[in-house]
Design a protein around this nucleic acid. Structure first.
Length: 217
DNA sequence: CGAATGATCGGCT
DNA sequence: GCCGATCATTCGA
């Protein structure tokens, strides 16, 4: 098995098709190193947010505020914000500068230094709740909103994404509506959540999983 | 300046 | 399954 580690290059992120970038992120590795030890996880669940027409996106209608300005930067930057006053959600900015597309990373399969990840989550043993969900995976990886705007293509970035050689088969990628965007009217039905089939680290929420499986199989 | 609202989670029933 | 936590952000007065 080819296990060569290669950081994704700028052109991976600057592509305009955020749905394609989202699917391509499955199977890649999110890595952090803040000096106290490196942690890594394989990306198994993502959601695409496509500005400006996507009502679920913070940049819907090209809304530009202090928080969302990061979304307009060049692909490869990190957009991190606080959700429900508690959880830090990590997104990858994609597209050219000026396009506010983003991919929310929703779940990871722990891959490296699970000891440190468990400690950050104040957990004693391995369980899906370590990294199955956007808020908990950020906590496990040590990611907080102070890193929003970080260019992950910069050599000194403490957060980056790399390939470790394994490929994902297209038929192992399932799709469903995105989680928690019921307010987004017609956009709420768009099946822009992508996840790996039969992977125990994919987040469990709502009963839409079985329906999606039947529909796609 | 005040009020409403989340791209959620985990504990409790 | 339901519900409370908890606060940055946003928008309107």
């Amino acid at each position: 098995m080819n296990e060569e580690r290669t950081r994704l290059d700028r052109s991976f992120f600057t592509r305009n098709d955020v749905l394609e970038v989202s699917r391509n992120l499955l199977g890649k590795y999110l890595v952090t190193d803040f000096g106290a030890g490196r942690t890594a996880g394989r990306i198994v669940e993502v959601e695409a947010y496509r500005a400006p027409e996507d009502k679920a996106s913070h940049a819907y209608g090209n809304r530009f505020t202090e928080r969302t300005k990061v979304m307009y930067s060049q692909g490869g930057h990190a957009y991190i914000y606080l959700c429900y006053g508690i959880h830090h959600l990590f997104n990858v900015v994609t597209g050219a500068e000026g396009m506010a597309h983003a991919v929310l990373i929703r779940a990871l399969e722990p891959a490296e230094n699970t000891t440190l990840m468990l400690r950050r989550r104040r957990m004693n043993k391995m369980a899906p709740r370590l990294t199955a969900g956007p808020g908990v995976l950020a906590q496990a990886m040590g990611i907080s909103r102070e890193y929003t705007g970080t260019d992950m293509l910069s050599a000194q970035s403490p957060i980056w994404i790399e390939s470790r050689g394994g490929l994902v088969n297209e038929e192992d990628i399932l799709a469903s509506p995105r989680i928690g965007v019921d307010y987004a009217e017609e956009c709420a039905a768009w099946e822009w959540r992508f996840f790996l089939r039969d992977n125990i680290w994919v987040s469990k929420r709502r009963g839409d999983e079985a329906k999606t499986m039947n529909k796609l199989l």
